[in-house]
Design a protein around this nucleic acid. Structure first.
Lengths: 351, 351
DNA sequence: CTGATATGCTAATACGCATTACCACCTCGA
DNA sequence: TCGAGGTGGTAATGCGTATTAGCATATCAG
């Protein structure tokens, strides 16, 4: 229900100023070719009328006419804003927002994308992607088929999180989890741990694989191996039994929320952390803090991830405006948080 | 840099299906007047081509052609996403997002609005409001002039938070702070408090006035009065000196963050809360929890505030689609959290 | 006085879609 | 055989803007 009647258009401005619509457009866009000359006097008169009428250009018309709209789309595969069980995106979006503000673009959140088969899909009837000049993709996992199709379409987009596929043509800004988990593994090794257990998520996205690979490679390098188990979070008590049976001295947990549950169960079972069992977490808090344990963990620069993604997208949309060209695929370093849940194993290996 | 070349339009679909562009449009919009009949066979053929080409309509063109865009704008007077010092909007936006998803609209965050004189302005050259079919306004304080102008423009919008002005024609969904602060005052009165101090914000928005009014009216009703002081948060220690000089038995604090500072200073000064001094807070946590005190306080239903605002805006944009008409101005009830910072004053009034 | 060049604009058009007016063809009843 | 009414579309137009080609007038060199 756009309010057609009282909309002020360039034509009306033109009438009031006694010029043509074209002239109004030219004044507005500050053109001054050899072929289009507007004397100061006319320009002033037009601007005056524009001020009086509080005219604003219709962005839809501008868009149709072929000029960009300065809109960056944001597609999240899950809810963008925090709910009671998860706050995954806001740290990223904080960075996105500040970068968007800097380059003067608005953010279009594709909240209307329907959920099919458990997740949102980019391509569906009445896809709205093109309303934005380019798009950011956020999500733990993304559909390779959709990514492939996006690449083919030549539509500018940037994924947050490393994405292989599409012959390496997917632009992304990700996190170097491999190096970080390797460093965490090294910390445990240096403390003398030998019995290790890895509780990981049932996901196979790039970042999940990176974490696992970083851990295993580092262990491999010193001839250690690691018991692993998949947990989806529904029955952490079962996982805990499994862990107790194996009796590791250090437990790596991929998901922060799982770590919290395990921590609680451990305390409840009289197992002290890190006295009896060290706990190292490979992810960050993604839900509202209830109790906060200072885990030994990695920490990704999430706001920076967001702002860098915007910068890269800006480049894809508008070219390097004289600035240095950014790589189309970037990995940012994690911080290692020493935390308080790693200690040397209780019994020094008596052999 | 819209990628003009390979854009699929209705015209191309029409060519491929051997019909006219008009037919494609008719099929897409499922029109079936007496004057425009499309036989099933043709419809099928067109839809088939559309599926193959993954055509999507250009929303800008649709908008220009006079149909809505299913975009709800979100204008925040400050940063929408949390930063280190404040997380004011996300609880609201959580509600906004889920409601937006339900009615199938996208959310356009006006991050590009420039900051002038300390806050964002809606109206500026190259105002982009009209890209959205309607708009939500969020902020502690809003410019009355801008609101007036919005009302005049007939553009559909809803303010979050009560807004007077414009002859009561501003649509809003707000919080009934008056009733809530009165109830909190009553709690203190019932405990026997007589020496009261109110530390409030240097703001005069409707919600601030409501809080103050609710408090003072309730006190008035039992013949009590209250020392008041304005604090902007820059020098809470000075405020604290003032409070100590007056020596109240209960302290009302409007801002949650101020309450935290005061709490810390009190503990530091050896004043026990609520033993020596009761503390009642009129606002909610708006920054990442560092330490969490279970204040006696009010709690506004912020996600609901967001979703109701979207529902109201939807009505303003599209009419009550058969549903019951929502009031254009709504106030939601707060919850009172008893908390742990209110107790009876130490010395019963010994006359 | 004549052509050339500069100046100050405007008319026309495209963008992609929705919508309305209308046309060509067919069938059927009288 | 003719007209009425039904069927299956299409051509034309408008939405508000950006852009380009070009026109009318003035000025100036020769």
């Amino acid at each position: 229900m756009l309010t057609r009647p009282q909309r002020v258009t360039q034509r009306k401005i033109a009438e009031l100023a006694g010029v043509s619509q074209a002239t109004v457009s030219l004044v507005l866009n500050g053109k001054a070719d050899a072929t289009t000359r507007i004397p100061e006097e006319t320009r002033r008169r037009v601007l005056e009328v524009i001020r009086e009428t509080t005219y604003v250009a219709d962005p839809a018309a501008r868009s149709l006419a072929g000029v960009g709209n300065n809109i960056v789309g944001v597609f999240t595969y899950e809810h963008a804003f925090p709910n009671e069980s998860s706050d995954f995106y806001t740290p990223l979006l904080t960075g996105v927002e500040s970068a968007a503000e800097q380059i003067g673009v608005d953010l279009l959140m594709f909240t209307s994308a329907p959920v099919t088969d458990g997740r949102r899909r980019i391509f569906h009837e009445n896809n709205r992607l093109r309303l934005a000049d380019g798009c950011l993709l956020l999500g733990r996992e993304m559909d390779p088929v959709e990514l492939e199709r996006l690449v083919e379409s030549d539509y500018p987009f940037v994924a947050i999180g490393r994405r292989d596929g599409a012959d390496g043509r997917i632009p992304y800004v990700g996190v170097d989890y491999g190096t970080a988990t390797a460093a965490l593994a090294r910390l445990a090794i240096d403390q003398g741990h030998k019995k290790l257990f890895y509780l990981h998520l049932p996901l196979t996205a790039e970042s999940n694989r990176d974490r696992t690979r970083g851990l295993l490679q580092e262990l491999d390098a010193v001839g250690l191996s690691c018991e692993t188990m998949v947990a989806d979070g529904t029955d952490l008590r079962a996982a805990w039994s499994e862990i107790r049976r194996f009796a590791p001295t250090v437990l790596f947990v991929e998901d922060h929320a799982h770590a919290q549950s395990v921590y609680d169960i451990a305390v409840e079972s009289g197992i002290s952390i890190p006295g009896d069992l060290s706990l190292i977490v490979f992810g960050e808090l993604t839900r509202p803090n209830e109790h906060v344990v200072d885990y030994t963990r990695l920490s990704a620069p999430r706001p920076e991830l967001g702002s860098r993604a915007v910068a890269l997208l800006d480049q894809l949309m508008n070219g390097t405006r004289g600035a240095e060209e950014l790589p189309r695929q970037q990995l940012l370093d994690c911080t290692i948080v020493e935390g308080a849940t790693l200690a040397a194993p209780r019994k020094e290996t008596a052999l």
